[in-house]
């Protein structure tokens, strides 16, 4: 693999811009069709070679955001700009043919067991993107490319003819990463890419993600629910709750100086490896359950579980406001 980094042509310096993204699913309740608001008004940007961590609890719409960016789901509303090209704009009714962009944006999936076709050899799995985009001139070049990709993710060349079920979870995830890298993308959505692995393997795979970023200059949208992992790999972190963005900041800034009450409670739930410190630190336990996305509370969705909630919270959803140094928070009271 040549070590040349990917370049961007965007004027703004952003590789990806997501503005007011909405994704509703129609769900039938009895005879009525009710929209399930999986993602409600999410905006963020990612610079070339940067990693944005996206955290939040299960069902808050993280995965949907990732898949909507890749247009695996059709967005309900919003605007997605990739490298200066508008991929989707609900107001101007723009929807482009995604095929050329599939070469430039890729995805690594959560479950290394179900994301690899059990009937295909590793060579065919990694070779599929090459086949689809016709990225080779002959069989020999295809094989060379596949082997260099396998080497890049730390797999043995002898493994090329094997089936996915013959590998361990970590190795399978490496195959998935090699498949995503095959088209030399500028941007990869890592959808809980390490959540299914155990801790020691997680570390290996995360380090590999970082090495690849250094070598190839890809940008990541790193989706996870483990704040420690996200803090380790991300340049910036965005916190989501019930389909809305609550707080965005630089990784260290968010860790040291969290503002939003939801972020505070998330951070307090991170296990501390030192029992002395752990005993002294206070855990903020949230009361009640996450409200159903079918019956979203008016105003701020977090107010039902927030101890700072006021009347204003019930009336209006707070905007993301800059609290200095690009630390954006959506809260009335903090």
């Amino acid at each position: 693999m040549e070590n040349e980094k990917v370049k961007t042509k965007a004027q703004s310096g952003n590789l990806l811009e997501v503005e007011h993204l909405k994704e509703y699913y129609p769900v039938s309740v009895g005879m009525k069709k009710v929209p399930l608001k999986a993602v409600e008004d999410v905006s963020f940007t990612i610079k070339p070679g940067e990693t944005l961590g996206l955290v939040g609890e299960s069902g808050c719409g993280k995965t949907t955001v990732g898949r909507t960016i890749l247009q695996l789901y059709k967005p309900t509303a919003g605007r997605i700009v990739f490298d200066g090209d508008v991929l989707f704009d609900s107001e101007k009714k723009i929807k482009v043919d995604m095929l050329p962009y599939r070469k430039r944006m890729q995805m690594v999936f959560q479950d290394p067991y179900s994301s690899l076709d059990p009937r295909m050899t590793v060579e065919d799995i990694i070779g599929e993107p090459l086949d689809v985009h016709k990225l080779y001139a002959n069989k020999k070049e295809r094989r060379e490319k596949i082997l260099s990709l396998m080497e890049l993710v730390g797999l043995n060349a002898e493994h090329a003819m094997r089936y996915a079920h013959e590998f361990s979870g970590g190795q399978r995830q490496r195959i998935g990463i090699a498949r995503a890298l095959a088209v030399r993308p500028q941007f990869i959505v890592c959808d809980e890419a390490v959540s299914a692995l155990d801790v020691s393997i997680q570390a290996q795979v995360i380090n590999m993600f970082e090495e690849i970023q250094e070598k190839l200059g890809v940008a990541y949208l790193f989706i996870a629910h483990d704040l420690l992992v996200v803090h380790h790999i991300s340049d910036r972190i965005a916190v989501m709750y019930l389909g809305r963005m609550m707080e965005t900041a630089d990784a260290d800034e968010l860790n040291e100086n969290p503002i939003h009450p939801y972020t505070l409670s998330l951070l307090s739930a991170v296990p501390i490896p030192d029992p002395e410190t752990a005993r002294r630190s206070k855990r903020i336990v949230l009361e009640g359950d996450v409200p159903s996305p079918l019956k979203m509370p008016a105003g701020c969705p977090f107010r039902t579980r927030c101890k700072y909630a006021t009347e204003q919270c019930a009336k209006e959803m707070p905007e993301l406001k800059d609290r200095g140094n690009g630390h954006l928070v959506a809260c009335w009271n903090k």
């Binding site: 898949r67 890749l70 695996l72 995604m98 095929l99 599939r102 070469k103 890729q106 995805m107 999936f109 959560q110 479950d111 179900s114 994301s115 690899l116 076709d117 059990p118 009937r119 295909m120 599929e128 993107p129 689809v132 985009h133 998935g176 498949r179 088209v183």
Partner: peptide, 24 residues
């Protein structure tokens, strides 16, 4: 997920049916 992965790659429908779904 492997079908979703194929769609992420940009694999056309016919190929997904032939290479992924029918063999399974």
């Amino acid at each position: 997920e492997f079908v979703l992965a194929a769609r992420t790659i940009g694999t056309p429908n016919g190929r997904i049916l032939r290479k992924h779904i029918i063999p399974n």
